[in-house]
Amino acid sequence: MLAGIATGGIYACMALAVVMIYQAIHHLNFAQGEMAMFSTFIAWQLLQWGFPYWLAFVLTIGISFVGGFIIERTVFKPIENAPVLSHIVVFIALFAIFNSLAGFIWDFTIKPFPSPFGNASLFGDGLIGAHQAGMIVMTFVVLVLLFAFFRYTRVGLAMRAAAANPESARLVGIRVGMMTGLGWGMASAIGAVAGILIAPVVFLEPNMMLSILLYGFAGAVLGGLTSPGGAVFGGFAVGVVENLAGTYIPVVGAELKLPIALFLIIAVLVFKPNGLFGRTIVQRV
């Protein structure tokens, strides 16, 4: 009954992206999934044009990085002083734009996306396939790289400072606007990686990310938004809980497995408001 692990891998991947973005820009970006989807379509297009896989992979990440940076500088710069809710509405607007554009350019039929890891079944009963394993490994590689980046490089530290406390960061000479732009670029690039890894499992189409993003959020919040490792754990936990609920709760279990999973997460949050592995932030008056 570990079927949930199979889907949990996808959620973990997305949850990690969500956490990294939260670290970099201190926002939950609702357009994140659509941006990742759009990046994946770019990768698909490059592959269609005959680029080798890894070249397309790297190019896509580069394009996404630049794209994310440009979006921050053009769309969000003018309204940086607007209230948070206005930002959220702009996220929703971006969501609509990317979804609609992708459908317009590449239409809505599903497209297979190749996996660099193959589709072989690793364990006999196929709980985890080669691709899933590859995906999880990739997720951890990204996790380690990011950890090192934020911890040991000047830019990484500056970015964290800019996100956590813009005023103080500005005082010590950090170009906060630039850092936020870079944060968006990185967020977009990580989203691209997640999209490329997820697409072989769920097939590529403009609406592929919507639900995954929800699970990603749930996983990230469960694990704690300040903890990348927690996010990965949270993603797997969501997958497993959802599946167990579907299997073991009679009558309504199968129909309501998502609501049940979400309900459990909320119950956890009520007792651990910062997630399982999150740091508690003390509020001062």
């Binding site: 769309v75 509405v89 929703i92 609509a96 734009i97």
Partner: peptide
């Protein structure tokens, strides 16, 4: 592109 148009109008309004 109605979705995209909706998004653009929304951003302009904001």
């Amino acid at each position: 592109l109605s979705g995209a148009m909706y998004g653009v109008i929304l951003i302009l309004l904001i």
